[in-house]
Design a protein around this nucleic acid. Structure first.
Lengths: 151, 151
DNA sequence: TTGTCTATGTCAAAGTCCTGACACCAAGAC
DNA sequence: GTCTTGGTGTCAGGACTTTGACATAGACAA
């Protein structure tokens, strides 16, 4: 309540602001996708498939930052709703390449527009140069953290 | 597998990189705190209390980006381990101001150093000016997203 | 005082996600 | 050829978090 004696340095840490921004983005995306009856992982799955058709479950999981198990249930849900299709048998190895259906493509189009609006709102006021620098800095952070300590 | 026809624009989106960075940071912090037997929410709680003693459960929850219920179980765990203390009765309203114990301060010191190392590693190669710009841009993103569409 | 609103702490139930484990398949080393 | 390694899909089990709900306490207006 009262002004802290020890200056609130938490809010100044890059990591703290990063987490804050990620949470805010997640909440906004959630709100934007709710009317479309899609969760964020579901949308991420559709978006990835739209840009790279034929991705396997494991590849989708890595792309959406979740585990294979979680992506598996996402895919089952989307398949039950008729948004994606997976072959019964693996054409090669054990991978089951997933593809969007026509309905899936329609849903993706609407969801993608909604998410693009969120991103546009998020970056409002940031010049293209600022956005580019932001992307570059964040990419550098990812590289620094996953350099060797990967796992 | 093959090079995608539709250029992989996902990886270029600010939101995607933001999420990626947040996940990488979370994983690195997890790994850094594991030897200290602390989870990220637990550390966040200690850090907040170290800088602003007397925070209530709800205030800690907001500061750590979790619900009051989650922070409640975190506090119970920390209290059982003797790292924090809470009064039996609320001195004002229903708020139970939490404070660090001596052991808690020791744990916080070690954890804070570990996390600072992670953040230092993350920002390696970024000039102070870059870091300042990064913080400013992220703060602007948060403000844009939580402006009115709050909640 | 009374009523309304907001905020807090807490309980129970539900959902979500991850960790651990297993079986299977391809590719390369021996 | 056989064996080992890495990658994949899937099945529980458990840990964590959130959603929903309730009782309580202060602030403010009627």
């Amino acid at each position: 309540m009262s002004t802290p004696e020890t200056v609130g340095r938490v809010e100044e840490a890059v990591g703290y602001v990063l987490k804050q921004a990620a949470v805010a983005l997640r909440n906004s995306m959630d709100a934007a996708l709710r009317p479309l009856h899609l969760t964020v992982p579901q949308y991420a799955c559709l978006e990835l498939l739209g840009q790279r058709p034929g991705l396997s479950n494991a590849e989708l999981a890595r792309g959406a930052f979740v585990t294979r198990q979680s992506m598996n249930v996402v895919l089952r849900g989307l398949e039950a709703r008729g948004l994606v299709t997976r072959p019964e048998t693996a054409p090669r190895g054990r991978e089951l390449p997933t593809a969007l259906t026509e309905t899936g493509r329609e849903h993706l189009q609407a969801a993608s527009a909604a998410v693009r609006n969120v991103e546009k709102k998020m970056c409002a006021g940031l010049t293209p140069a600022h956005q580019r620098d932001l992307r570059k800095s964040l990419t550098a952070c990812v590289r620094n953290l996953t350099e060797d300590r990967q796992r």
